[in-house]
């Protein structure tokens, strides 16, 4: 897939040369090529199963990479782009350790294909702040002892950021319900609740 272009932008979305380059291996591909050859103009291009060139926008930077369509956004971030804030824990859209923002909304990066995320704005914990310049919620996590082993923390801070954006003045019940998509096996929920309440009290995520 050409960088930054969605498949349908130029009709076939991929040059014939690129198509043959990415589709010549294996019996399945051969069969598809012959089908593609006979296809009427406007037929939708199939990508893969071999690696496809895509571009992800991660923390404001465009990053090119080549992945098979089966690669998840989480694996692409961690294994291809070395963005290791999002963690792989359950890998089944349950624990929240892989939470990132996609076009401003919290998602489980383990359950989105990297190829689906092309052209979308991805923000990870690294994009919220750095040790020198922490985001208010990151600071509040430190100050409220909201982590123990820290493995769930990058996902949690991203989820908290998004939660506070929607709920600037949350109650404890709002926090418990709104952050139900993230788990902490060390059980630091008390600290996390306090971190969220404190961030809200101190002027929110933009303070």
């Amino acid at each position: 897939m050409p960088e930054g272009k969605r498949p349908e932008e130029n009709g076939s979305g991929i040059s014939r040369r690129d198509f043959f380059k990415t589709s010549t291996a294996g019996a399945v591909s051969t069969a598809l090529i012959s089908k593609q050859g006979m296809a009427a103009p406007g037929e939708v291009t199939k990508f893969g199963p071999d690696p496809v060139k895509i571009k992800l926008i991660v923390n404001g930077k465009g990053r090119g990479l080549k992945v098979e369509p089966r690669v998840t956004l989480l694996d692409a971030l961690r294994n291809e782009l070395d963005v290791t804030g999002p963690k792989k824990v359950c890998d089944r859209a349950t624990c929240g350790a892989c939470t990132v923002l996609m076009d401003g909304k919290p998602v489980y990066a383990c359950s989105i294909l990297a190829i689906e995320a092309e052209g979308k704005q991805i923000v990870t914990a690294e994009g919220l702040g750095s040790p020198d310049k922490m985001h208010p919620i990151q600071k509040a996590f430190v100050e409220n002892d909201a982590q123990q082993c820290g493995f769930c923390t990058p996902g949690f801070v991203v989820a908290c950021q998004s939660f506070l954006e929607e709920n600037p003045n949350p109650s404890v019940k709002d926090i418990e319900e709104g952050l139900g998509g993230n788990l902490c096996r060390c059980g630091t929920y008390k600290g996390i609740r306090e971190a969220v309440l404190e961030t809200a009290a101190k002027g929110g995520i933009d303070a």
Binding site: L32, V52, L113
Partner: peptide, 26 residues
């Protein structure tokens, strides 16, 4: 996860054309 091909049609007619045995909707 097994390898697969991926397509992203823009009309429901072309989606239906792509579907069939061995294909799934995402």
């Amino acid at each position: 996860m097994n390898r697969f091909q991926y397509a992203s049609p823009v009309t429901k007619e072309s989606a239906v054309e792509l579907l069939g045995s061995g294909a799934v909707v995402l």
